[in-house]
């Protein structure tokens, strides 16, 4: 059982790697107090998902889904759906990253800190004054 599990993971090496990256990104986003690193973690997490999707669309020995020489046979091309999903996902992640970075800039200007906990404490103090 155990051997076959590892073997299967090695066969699915792209997914395995992307899941590990997803976990790492998730950890950083949840755990790290530095806002910039949180944003990096978010990007790692998103990218890992795209790697996962992209590897799911791949079929060994087939070409990218752009019609060449009028060949329109299923057996010639890989699955186009995941590629499209990844394209959409990338734009979403660009927007959220820009928003988070802008928020970080404003918070840093105000509190001179990138540490989220410190920012929360300082914000609370500021409110009471």
């Amino acid at each position: 059982m155990d051997v076959s599990l590892v073997e299967h993971l090695l066969l699915n090496i792209e997914e395995t790697v992307s899941i590990v990256l997803f976990g790492i990104g998730f950890t950083i986003l949840l755990l790290h107090r530095n806002l910039i690193k949180k944003i990096m973690g978010m990007n790692i997490m998103d990218t890992a998902t795209y790697l996962f999707l992209a590897s799911k669309g791949y079929i060994t020995g087939r070409a990218v889904p752009i019609v060449v020489d009028g060949i329109q046979d299923v057996s010639a091309y890989i699955n186009p759906v995941p590629s499209g999903l990844v394209l959409t996902g990338i734009v979403v992640s660009v927007s959220t990253t820009a928003l988070m970075l802008a928020l970080t800039i404003r918070l840093y200007e105000r509190y001179h800190s990138l540490d989220l906990d410190e920012i929360l404490i300082l914000a609370k103090e500021e409110e009471q004054i």
Partner: peptide, 19 residues
């Protein structure tokens, strides 16, 4: 999730459910 991946269809296989 790794345990899940271990029971997912194998990459690059033309007979996977998503094709």
């Amino acid at each position: 999730l790794l345990w899940t991946v271990a029971s997912l269809p194998i990459t690059g296989n033309a007979s996977n459910p998503d094709n």
